[in-house]
Design a protein around this nucleic acid. Sequence first.
DNA 1: TTTGAGAATTAGGTTGGTCTAAAAATAATT
DNA 2: AATTATTTTTAGACCAACCTAATTCTCAAA
Lengths: 220, 220
Amino acid sequence: MELTVAEENYLKAIYHLSDGGKKSVSTNDIASEMKTKPASVSDMLRKLGEKEVIEYRKYYGLQITDSGKRYALQTIRKHRLWEVFLVDKLNFAWDEVHEVAEQLEHIQSPLLIQRLDAFLNYPKFDPHGDPIPDEFGDVRSRPRVQLNEMEINQTGQIVAVEDSSAAFLRYLDKVGAYIGARIKVLDKVEFDGSIEILVDQKKTIFMSKDVASNILIIQS
Amino acid sequence: MELTVAEENYLKAIYHLSDGGKKSVSTNDIASEMKTKPASVSDMLRKLGEKEVIEYRKYYGLQITDSGKRYALQTIRKHRLWEVFLVDKLNFAWDEVHEVAEQLEHIQSPLLIQRLDAFLNYPKFDPHGDPIPDEFGDVRSRPRVQLNEMEINQTGQIVAVEDSSAAFLRYLDKVGAYIGARIKVLDKVEFDGSIEILVDQKKTIFMSKDVASNILIIQS
DNA sequence: TTTGAGAATTAGGTTGGTCTAAAAATAATT
DNA sequence: AATTATTTTTAGACCAACCTAATTCTCAAA
Ligand SMILES: [Mn+2]
Ligand SMILES: [Mn+2]
Ligand SMILES: [Mn+2]
Ligand SMILES: [Mn+2]
């Protein structure tokens, strides 16, 4: 069975809003995420229910099915692979890729995705540090901590940011704290929670607790 | 103004069928090209007329406007750039690319196309030897060379013959050197100017300088 | 110059995706 | 427990893109 572009977008939104099927999602939540009206969502939920990618009980919410999860993860996989392509190969900035990936994720061609994946050297994370599901929908998830929660002398790798505003990304770019950078905590200031880190064993940078709390690390 | 995916596809078909606005096209021609019914075409022609990308007089056919040509050439440009990407970067065979390019050509992002063009090193021809319009819609008139003037390792596509005698055409047929065939020069013999070429990546043929000088190639 | 074949258009219907406004169901408050 | 507020669904409509069947138009042959 194949899904329409709109169905793919709804399913992806449902997957994200429900945190992979764990939390419950409301019609209004979906509507605001999709920038449509609740009436349109009700209509779509009925259709998604008929296609059995969600289990839908009127007025009582929905549950994404295993089939639905597979579709959602497939779309997420494509979205993130394209984002890697745009950044790594076409020199897009982090904050320029989303709109385009939102379109590219709907291109139908298993061969294309397989080849793209190989061309990009089987990346495991997208430019925002989010994990790329494999072709079976498996997501390798490693525990991520906020940089401000790390202790002195602990080390790790920057894998994601929680604030992806252009201003924040520009700041990171400027100080050289890019995704993938290896870091070590050199010092922490008790008073205000600010932190000093060593980036890639060569550059030392200071940042406020506020900034650090928006940087996600996988420790190693 | 923006065109829908369907409108882009119709306009591209009209552009091609009319040979860039030179020949007249019938509703039935469009219908069979687009694999739709004539009734659907009439409907679409009315819409395209309203958007002034064609000039449409009921029962008397249509004329693509300058605006329409620009849109068509833009879509063709994107289609062919993506084909180059698929073949050069993702190792698609040149007969596997069309379906996917048919989808990719509708992605809306001027920046994407600009960057893709640069990434591919500003190619002038697609994998089928068709010219890629530049960002202003200008198509470089395709310089044709005689096969005997090509050098070893150069590639191209057979586009015409200068001798159209039955005997010559019969010969071409026999060796599989038909119009449209992609060729690569494998070897040249200094002594008599004879040449060895690879046809469609599978068949090797020898020909005299005399024969080769009657075959016209667009290099790519 | 009438007529008939074929081409093209219109009429009316379907599906997907959206909307507003009205109605119904659930949740919260008194 | 009753009433009000909020959420959700339904009703009815619109637009894009298609379809089949009926109609209209053009053009060439009788
Ligand atoms: Mn999307
Ligand atoms: Mn992302
Ligand atoms: Mn297309
Ligand atoms: Mn081509």
